[in-house]
């Protein structure tokens, strides 16, 4: 392990932000992270709006999928690029403004202090998620229990896009589920590949915008189908 300073330098962190049609928010989200001194890779998942141009104008490195592949694929693309550029600490961050930079910094700090290879945010630990719709809370809880049962990792919030990982974890994890099943896949790989992980409480900002862009409960059936077909292989 590399020598650890007391607090981590934001310039060491690479933020990977997968984005699909996030034009209205992307410049603000990427801009806030960039202002803190960290590097930002926005993976434009073949948006039909000007997401890529806005992210570039805000100062982010932009990679654009030549076809739409899904959020899992976008995360893996961003992680690959950051690794190629020598990143030692990678943070995954949502493009819709629902994550707080302060939470990301705390996760990054935990990884920097080598308390874990990967630190995952949970909206169900301590900090009460405000304004979370009851139906979504139920669906997320069910998803966490399902992930716990199938992977054996005691997660409380499997579908939280806010994570920080060191280079070792980023090189070890390989997301192959292109759409949303990648969240459970990631937890499974943490277990299989013996990564040290921890969960920290984070706050999710539920705005009208993020709710509109977020997962619909009906999609959980698609996720289950994806996972099932993955096991068949």
């Amino acid at each position: 392990m590399r020598p650890q300073g007391a607090t981590f330098d934001p310039a060491d962190a690479w933020f990977v932000i997968p984005a699909y049609n996030e034009g209205p928010m992307i410049a603000q989200v990427a801009g806030e992270v960039l202002a803190s001194g960290s590097r930002v890779v926005v993976v434009d998942d073949h948006s039909t709006d000007d997401t890529g141009d806005r992210a570039l104008a805000a100062g982010a490195i932009v990679v654009r999928h030549p076809v739409n592949l899904g959020q899992g694929a976008a995360l893996q693309t961003g992680i690959d690029l950051a690794l190629r550029r020598g990143a030692t600490l990678i943070v995954t961050f949502d493009a819709d403004g629902q994550h707080r930079l302060a939470d990301a910094v705390r996760l990054a700090q935990a990884v920097h202090e080598d308390r874990a290879d990967i630190a995952c945010g949970s909206r169900f630990l301590g900090v009460e998620a405000r304004d979370i719709p009851a139906s979504r809370r139920l669906a997320l809880r069910a998803a966490a229990i399902f992930t716990r049962l199938t992977t054996g990792v005691p997660v409380t919030d499997a579908h939280n896009g806010l994570r920080a990982m060191n280079r070792h974890a980023a090189m070890t994890i390989r997301l192959t589920h292109n759409r949303m099943a990648h969240a459970s896949e990631l937890v499974g790989q943490i277990r299989e590949r013996k990564l040290r992980s921890l969960e920290l409480p984070v706050e999710i900002l539920y705005t009208e915008y993020s709710l509109r862009k977020g997962q619909r409960i009906s999609n959980s059936l698609n996720i289950l189908a994806d996972l099932f077909m993955g096991w068949l292989r």
Binding site: A60, I61, V63, H65, L81, N178, M229, R233
Partner: peptide, 27 residues
């Protein structure tokens, strides 16, 4: 057929990823 499609899916993903990274735009 489904398994074959998944294989193609992965191939397309790797291909698209490699194209995307090659053409990364810098600020």
């Amino acid at each position: 057929v489904h398994a074959r499609f998944r294989t193609y899916d992965r191939m397309i993903t790797e291909l698209a990823r490699s194209v995307a990274i090659t053409h990364a735009r810098e600020p």
